[in-house]
């Protein structure tokens, strides 16, 4: 079904705009048209449908669930909810405090917060349509594993001792009331539709520029970097290429939506999958602006620990995948 976008791009790029199919610019323009039309079509359709389904899921319910349930399952549940619960990164402080003051361990809360930017429905959708099922599954598993392992590690080192004093106090005196806010009447279809509409506009509004930038970069890579350049230069998964990729991702700031079209291009050009994933995840999850926000509830020491933890996990994951997954 999605081949209709290839046909559309063929027609626009080659017939209407008159680019030569085998020219660099023609290739880039074709890539750009095909990916932007496909991505926006899928985004509109899928965000709406998914929002209809999960209209009744919100962070309050997740908190209640995590606070009541088994600690060891908690990390898995935290990471899973992080992947499926939508929330804007500007809410990470209130969410962190809400979880903490409900007595949820810092590690489980961080499993939620670390997984959240990496995996969401938009990211999964783009991965599926651009790089296929196999890589999508690897991406999701890696994202969840990093969230879970990070959370377990933070509780092992008793990270709560490194919170800002008021947040630590809220954790220690956690008085969990059976959340009256979270008990909501069943939603009618009308309410679900309204929610989905608002959600759709909200997400589109937030991601459209990332899609354009991401696809633009992807298109430039696609058209202008020689086909075997990555394969020739970095194709053996040279060990240093993974930490380099992670470091290169830090100053770049993007969300998953913007980075996935770039990922598509990098893989097409023969960059090993582990190196590509390390670069993309670092771009998405290890960004300074969002880390600085967490300073309001954490000490510098804990912030630095979490940041290093992320960089190390991306590097390890990159190495591991380069070894076991040879394209």
């Amino acid at each position: 079904m999605l081949s209709i976008f290839t046909i559309l791009a063929d027609w626009l790029a080659y017939s209407i705009f008159g680019f030569m199919p085998d020219s660099k610019l023609g290739g880039a323009v074709h890539f750009f048209i095909e990916d932007t039309t496909k991505i926006f079509f899928l985004l509109v359709l899928m965000i709406y449908i998914i929002a209809l389904i999960r209209a009744s899921l919100n962070v309050e319910r997740v908190r209640d669930y995590l606070a009541k349930n088994n600690k060891y399952l908690g990390y898995l549940m935290g990471a899973t909810f992080g992947a499926i619960t939508p929330f804007c990164s500007c809410s990470s402080i209130p969410v962190f405090l809400g979880f903490t003051s409900a007595g949820i361990p810092v590690g489980i809360t961080m499993s939620f917060l670390l997984t959240s930017p990496l995996i969401n429905e938009v990211a999964v959708l783009l991965l599926l349509s651009l790089v296929g099922l196999e890589i999508t599954i690897i991406y999701v598993l890696v994202g969840m594993a990093i969230g879970i392992a990070g959370g377990v590690f933070l509780d092992l080192i008793r990270a709560e001792q490194l919170l800002q004093p008021f947040a630590l106090k809220a954790y220690q005196t956690a008085a969990f009331s059976d959340g009256e806010l979270s008990i909501r009447p069943k939603l009618s279809f009308r309410e679900r539709h309204d929610f989905a509409k608002v959600e759709l506009l909200d997400i589109l509004n937030r991601v459209w520029k990332w899609v354009l930038i991401g696809v633009g970069l992807g298109a430039a890579l696609h058209g202008f970097v020689p086909d075997l350049w990555f394969a020739d230069n970095l194709g053996n998964g040279q060990w240093w290429s993974v930490p380099m990729a992670v470091l290169a991702g830090i100053p770049l700031y993007s969300n998953a939506t913007g980075v996935i079209p770039v990922m598509e291009s990098l893989i097409l050009k023969g960059l090993p999958l582990g190196t590509t994933l390390a670069f993309c995840m670092s771009t998405v999850a290890a960004s300074f602006p969002e880390f600085i926000l967490l300073k309001q509830v954490m000490t510098w020491k804990l912030l630095v620990i979490i940041f290093m933890l992320l960089l190390m996990s991306f590097t390890l994951v990159g190495w591991l995948i380069n070894i076991i997954y040879v394209l």
């Binding site: 809410s91 209130p94 969410v95 405090l97 008021f166 806010l181 309001q296």
Partner: peptide
Amino acid sequence: SPEVILKHGVMSTPAVVIDNRLMHSGS
């Protein structure tokens, strides 16, 4: 201030508080 937001038990912002009563949260 995160402390004030915590006091009202708000997890999704923006939230609206009138006369110390939480009226709305999340949009």
